[in-house]
Amino acid sequence: MASYSTNEFRSGLKVMLDGDPCSILENEFVKPGKGQAFNRVRLRNLKTGRVWDRTFKSGESLEGADVMDRTMEYLYNDGEFYYFMEPDTFEQHQADVKAVGDAHLWLKEQESCEVTLYNGTPLSVAPPNFVELEIVETDPGLKGDTAQGGSKPATLSTGAVVKVPLFLSQGEVIRVDTRSGEYQGRGGKS
């Protein structure tokens, strides 16, 4: 892998730091009138998600990290691993529970999602921003209660629990924002 000097650090560059792959978010060059120059760099640890600031001496280098973001189709889960497929090559990748993390709440078979590969292995999975999922369990819908406030929990086919309006019932498909976990509306009208 190539190495990158502090003045090549750009937002989105993936580097190795303390043994973990990290993504550079920001890079600020600071220098007193005379004297030592520094780069104050904001990074995200791609394994843990932690975001923090680290200072480097200007001109220092870091090894690049073999990290790639790929759009893949989610196939299935065999109880232990989650399987994804690259749409062009049909190559399959298995991701463990740690890599999938909370994304499992929003993964629907045959839907596309972003899989981050580190040394060829899935490191993290990002679901689409919006998914449509079926309600598999909720209290019975209240007839006539269409627009007024009030909500109730509903369990979706993936196991996610979201708050939905009272008028929805089991078997209906809803649209959810996966970033906030919030109900957006009935499905099928995007």
């Binding site: 007193p32 600031d53 680290r54």
Partner: peptide, 24 residues
């Protein structure tokens, strides 16, 4: 005050660091 990794330096180095990171 800061995550400085494995930085090393002399007295002026640390003075410059505090100047740029805290005093500016």
């Amino acid at each position: 005050r800061h995550d400085l990794g494995n930085l090393e330096g002399d007295r002026d180095f640390w003075l410059d660091l505090l100047l740029t990171h805290d005093l500016e």
